Computed example of a mutant assay.
Amino acid sequence: MVRKFEERDLEAVMELWLAGNLQAHSFIPEQYWKDVEEFVRSLLPGAALYVYEGETDCPDGFIGLNGDYIEGIFVRSEKRSGGIGTALLDFAKKGHSALALRVYQKNERAVDFYLKNGFRIREEGLDADTGEREYEMVWKGEGR
């Protein structure tokens, strides 16, 4: 079930955020993620976040939205490839006629996930903070 983020979710969401970034972005020094962790923690309570809650009260994944922009999708490592990311993405699609995001080119698993879910690469760029190449990807709903 996808539901709106609640303050009680903060620690679990931060755990998902850090673990997900460290696992998916091994090409970026671990210290980068640790250095921005407190900044991200301060932003989360005011963001448009939605969590996926499975059989327990602990979130197994979450999506962050900023208008039509997906800030990120994170899923607990042992729950990946089980439909949680797709459920979160489908939830976001229902409320939008178009969505955009940025993803590191080296994060091939994520790039493939978004391509399989109807996104296309609009342009290539460079993340100024990390120096890594990234794609801007977009999705437009049917008939739009």
Rank of each mutant, 00 (worst) to 15 (best):
F5T: 15
S26C: 11
K93R: 14
M137D: 08
G125M: 05
E108W: 02
G83P: 07
T130C: 11
K106G: 02
N107P: 04
R102Q: 08
Q31K: 13
D129F: 07
N117W: 11
R122Q: 02
L65C: 09
K93S: 02
P59H: 11
A92S: 01
Q23F: 00
Y32Q: 14
E11G: 01
E78T: 10
E55W: 14
Q105E: 15
A98D: 11
F113I: 10
A100H: 10
G54K: 04
W33H: 14
I63M: 06
I121C: 07
Y32P: 05
R120N: 10
L44E: 04
D9I: 02
S42W: 06
Y135A: 00
G125E: 09
S97V: 11
L44C: 07
R120V: 12
D57H: 07
T86K: 07
R102H: 13
G125C: 06
Y135G: 01
G143V: 05
S77C: 09
I84T: 08
G46I: 00
G143I: 04
G143Q: 03
Y69T: 14
A128S: 15
D35C: 00
R102C: 07
W33P: 10
R133W: 08
V111W: 02
R144T: 14
E38I: 07
I63A: 04
G95N: 06
E38Y: 02
D129Q: 15
V103C: 10
G118R: 02
W139E: 07
D57C: 05
F39Y: 12
